[in-house]
């Protein structure tokens, strides 16, 4: 690996949800729920489709505002980045995508190219530098999105089902990249409905069902002694409605 490193934050910011609920068109889609995200481990948000996983993350990241309740960061509001299920890449080359993220952050022009190249190399994309981002393979696109997130030097990284459309080799590369962030001290919040992935990555699990928070427990506890019948059914791979 290269000499890239992120500053280890001295104190990890904590995110508090207080009775947060979100509704659209009169329909309650999430909550009300209260929870805390603290420490710098890897939290997996799990649950069947439509459980509210993406919504919970968008609320945490500040992309949507809660309809009621409030959430706040204890300490300071950390630098954040988010990687989406379908990476949104600009219609430019891979390198230009990274240079754009640097430019937005106010990185001086003469340093952008070098930093972009470092990140491309770091995430195994050195051979596609000048390729248009949108003709890259799914796995390469997602790694480019991760490289872009890396350049934003986040303290918290949100990932919304980042591997759901990828093949096993690409999933492995993305998971390795996520662990690179983790080892650099970045707090990981990721949604997934892949149980095997959750077992590989999770330090703790938030389990949602029909917009309700059913469990928030350490990964071992969640997988071995789930507290709710719904979680138990989910872990056993039963089809849930």
């Amino acid at each position: 690996m290269t000499s890239l490193s992120l500053a280890h934050p001295t104190c990890m910011p904590r995110l508090h949800f207080h009775d947060v609920a979100y509704q659209a068109a009169g329909q309650l889609l999430l909550g009300p729920l209260s929870l805390q995200l603290e420490g710098n481990h890897r939290t997996l948000i799990m649950g069947p489709n439509g459980a509210g996983k993406s919504l919970l993350m968008r609320l945490a990241h500040g992309l949507v505002k809660p309809s009621s309740g409030h959430l706040h960061w204890c300490g300071h509001v950390p630098r954040q980045a988010m990687v989406f299920q379908h990476p949104v890449l600009l219609r430019r080359s891979a390198r230009a995508n990274l240079e754009y993220a640097l430019a937005v952050q106010g990185c001086p022009r003469n340093r952008r190219r070098q930093r972009a190249m470092e990140a491309l190399e770091h995430f195994g994309l050195a051979n596609v530098t000048r390729r248009p981002a949108r003709v890259l393979s799914g796995g390469e696109q997602q790694r480019l999105a991760l490289a872009r997130a890396w350049l934003l030097e986040p303290e918290v990284l949100f990932l919304d089902e980042p591997t759901s459309a990828l093949d096993p080799a690409a999933i492995r590369a993305v998971e390795d990249a996520i662990n690179t962030f983790h080892h650099a001290g970045v707090r990981i919040v990721m949604s997934s409905h892949d149980l095997h992935q959750a077992r590989r990555l999770a330090d703790d699990v938030i389990f949602l069902h029909h917009g309700k928070l059913l469990e928030h427990s350490p990964a071992d506890t969640f997988f071995q002694v789930p507290a709710t019948v719904q979680a138990k059914a989910f872990i056993q791979g039963e089809l849930m409605d």
Binding site: R58, H61, L63, Q80, A81, M82, F84, V88, L90, R91, R92, Y100, A101, V104, L152
Partner: peptide
């Protein structure tokens, strides 16, 4: 969503979107 996630201002989005 991606631009909001990167805190790109409205004014900054104009040249970005025109180019893309």
């Amino acid at each position: 969503e991606q631009l909001s996630s990167m805190s790109v201002s409205k004014a900054r989005r104009i040249p970005t979107l025109l180019w893309d």
